[in-house]
Nucleic acid binder design. Structure first.
Length: 537
RNA sequence: GUCCCUAUAGCUCAGUGGAUAGAGCGCCGGCCUCCGGAGCCGGAAACAGAGGUUCAAAUCCUCUUAGGGACACCA
């Protein structure tokens, strides 16, 4: 990585560690810059002198290093070095990062509830989770994907209640839910069903339940396939609940949990959090207990160094309590567990809720965007890939902390800062490579580059840094933004630097090399975002 | 009421304490005898407010305002 090399050379020259190196926004400020001289209150010239004298004579890293502004040091990479690195990148785009190499990471995400709709909130969690997995895998980690599904609980009882009255599965939960809220008789029945389902005590109920569950899981599986996620482990609350309950009961003996008003609670207020119920006065485990029980089971299946759980931000506080409790019971697992929250997907009409009936189903959204794509491409398969790209990218380009507002489902664009723009850019550069006479024989060791060619080359070489930054901060948007910026530069290059017509052989070879690197970078970068880059579209 | 998150252009978003705050959509004006116009070039347009820390603040701290979320038997 270029950044690493520069940092090393500054560390040598200053004797300081943890140097901060910035990439320059303005080309006049070089390719990279540092304010280390300001921080150390040293004369930048001294540092520069040491830096340059340590530099290798043959193929030097820097063309020049200058002091500028109030005390910045700006680094201008040498063309020779850029060309050398560009040649390396042609062969190998490997991005392994020592921080992640060989690390085992369990990522739990998606977590839809059987019997309920797979809505765009699940889609968001799935998209983020899958990208986190791919980012870490690209960095050298061993990743296992985990899906934890709530196949017991009140929501299930509501659905089964409606299924008993022969409502179709798609409408069962909503029907049961409104009956629960408006009809006291139904409410009683549903509560009774809930217990029966936990205990599996009624064969007739079991039959309805089992069929509905299987049907629901099969429908989810179809969606995962469409989205491109394959889970390694599936866990179900019906299995984990009991284990969690046992853990809580044992924890109670150790004083981790307390009895309060008939329920068993974790006294979060002792840790600056709030009190939460882990086992209800009915003796049923809550979500907290189910998640608590899952930790050791996950570990049994995969000895992780880090366990990430991806969910929406509305349950941040639950996880604070949960992780605090986990640390009390299994300190090692608690230390290794991390909750990664993303913002909520809001419609212009407000928060999605099955009660209000303004849930957007994932399939409906994808199909609608696909229809838009079909107006341009006619090819089914491509339209599907374009639709997925548009939807996924729109979710990934935004920082994780913020809510995303979908003002109207059909408002997703296929132009501008979008997934299809990146796909298009990739396809168009691929098409250059199909032109007669376009072939990379050897990248010249030295050639005069235009300013744009230089900027583009440096941007392409920064790919590994973008992956590293995105992975270390668990921020897919860092990679998405990098790809967009690079694609913009690439398109600018496309319009001003023809390849086939270039007469000068060295220049032509440089351009072919750039074209290949653009296509490879976009293809690889998009694949980490879970987006397929077609050759033609 | 308590805790957490958010506030950047008309709209949707970028912006690891650093130099002239970047994009997309929308709006206005250009570009197809030339490798793919899902594209390119140009234009107008923004850091919620007030203090503070710092050589340097959209970024850190405090307060105010506005929006969202969570606050024990749902997840």
């Amino acid at each position: 990585m270029i950044r690493q090399e520069i940092i090393k050379s500054i560390e040598k020259a200053t004797g300081k560690k943890n140097i901060r190196l910035e990439r320059s926004e303005n080309p006049e400020h070089g390719d990279y810059s540092t304010s280390i001289a300001l921080k150390l209150k040293k004369n930048p010239q001294e540092i520069i002198k040491k830096l340059l004298s340590a530099q290798a004579e043959k193929s030097p890293l820097f063309e020049r290093v200058e002091a500028a502004g109030p005390g910045f040091i700006n680094f201008y990479l040498s063309e020779k070095y850029i060309l050398k690195e560009l040649a390396k990148a042609q062969k190998d785009l490997s991005l392994t990062n020592p921080a992640w190499k060989g690390k085992k990471v369990a990522v739990e995400f998606t977590d839809p509830n059987p019997f309920k709709v797979f809505h765009i909130g699940h889609l968001y969690t799935n998209t983020v989770g899958e990208t986190i997995c791919r980012l870490l895998e690209a960095s050298g980690a061993k990743v296992k994907r985990i899906n934890y599904q709530g196949d017991v609980g009140l929501h299930v009882a509501k659905a089964v209640w409606a299924l008993k009255l022969s409502y179709p599965l798609e409408r069962a939960y909503a029907t049961g839910n409104s009956a629960f809220e408006t009809d006291p008789v139904a409410k009683k029945e549903i509560e009774g069903l809930n217990k029966k389902i936990y205990e599996r005590s009624d064969p007739a109920v079991n039959k309805i339940y089992d069929r509905g569950r299987a049907q629901s899981l099969a429908a989810f599986e179809k969606i995962y396939k469409r989205l491109g996620t394959k889970f390694d482990f599936y866990y179900f609350e019906s299995e984990i609940g009991k284990i969690g309950k046992k853990i809580v009961e044992e924890g109670r003996k150790k004083g981790v949990f307390e009895k309060s008003e008939g329920a068993i609670v974790f006294p979060g207020e002792k840790y600056g959090l709030h009190k939460r119920v882990f086992i209800t006065s009915e003796g049923l485990p809550t979500y907290e207990t189910k998640e608590l029980g899952l930790a050791p089971i996950k570990y049994k299946g995969f000895k992780y160094d880090l366990s990430i759980i991806v969910t929406g931000s509305e349950i941040i506080d639950y996880f604070k309590v949960l992780i605090a409790a986990l640390k009390k019971i299994y300190p090692k697992l608690g230390q290794r567990t991390m909750h990664l929250a993303h913002g909520m997907l809001l419609l212009k009409s407000g928060k999605m809720s099955s009660r209000k009936g303004n849930i957007v189903r994932t399939e409906d959204l994808l199909n609608q965007v696909k229809q838009m794509a079909l107006q341009r491409s006619k090819n089914e398969e491509i339209a599907e890939k374009v639709a997925l790209a548009a939807v996924k990218y729109s979710l990934l380009r935004v920082g994780l902390g913020k809510d995303i507002i979908f003002d109207a489902v059909g408002s997703l664009s296929l132009e501008g800062d979008t997934g299809p723009y990146l796909q298009y850019t990739h396809a168009r550069f691929k098409s250059i490579l199909r032109q007669p006479g376009v072939e990379l024989k050897k990248l010249p060791a030295s050639v005069k580059m235009s300013q744009l060619e230089r900027r583009l080359a440096v941007a392409l070489l920064r790919f590994a840094e973008a992956i590293q930054d995105a992975a270390s901060s668990f921020s897919p948007n860092v990679l998405a933004n990098y790809l967009h910026n690079t694609a913009m530069l690439a398109n600018e290059f496309y319009h001003s630097h023809p390849v086939t017509q270039e007469k000068d052989n060295a220049k032509k070879q440089l351009r072919v090399g750039l074209v290949k690197a653009i296509a490879a970078t976009l293809q690889k970068g998009l694949s980490i975002l879970g987006i397929f880059a077609p050759e033609k579209m």
